[in-house]
């Protein structure tokens, strides 16, 4: 099974990836065969089975809303590809 080229390109756009033509071909085959394999799940009767999001059951983890020391602004932007005066610099957003 292969998944359609347009579908690969659509999903790639959703994931903010650009993929060249050769790779589209490879991914459509590889993703197709993986999806074909996971199709086996449809054989399992899951009516009335709740989904599991976390392996170990737990209630909400709350903490007190208190002021505490966190990263200084300069530390927070220290790894940014581009930063100025404690701000992240991004390319032009609106044309």
């Amino acid at each position: 099974m292969k998944i359609a080229r347009e579908e690969v390109l659509h999903v790639a756009h959703l994931a903010r990836l650009s993929i060249d033509d050769d790779a589209v071909e490879t991914f459509s085959e590889q993703l197709g065969s993986i999806l074909e394999y996971v199709e086996s799940l449809s054989r399992v009767d899951t009516s009335n089975v709740p989904p599991t999001a976390h392996a170990v059951e737990m209630a909400n983890a709350f903490r007190k809303d208190e002021a505490a020391r966190h990263l200084e602004r300069e530390e927070a932007v220290a790894n940014a590809p581009k930063a100025e005066e404690g701000h992240f610099i991004v390319p032009k957003v609106i044309e």
Partner: peptide, 30 residues
Amino acid sequence: VKRRILLGTYALSAGYYEAYYKKASQVRTL
């Protein structure tokens, strides 16, 4: 990494979520 991001995005995308991600999470319960 790209392959898994694509696969995961596909499994979570509109129209596929129930059949893939939700189904897998139910099987996880089992």
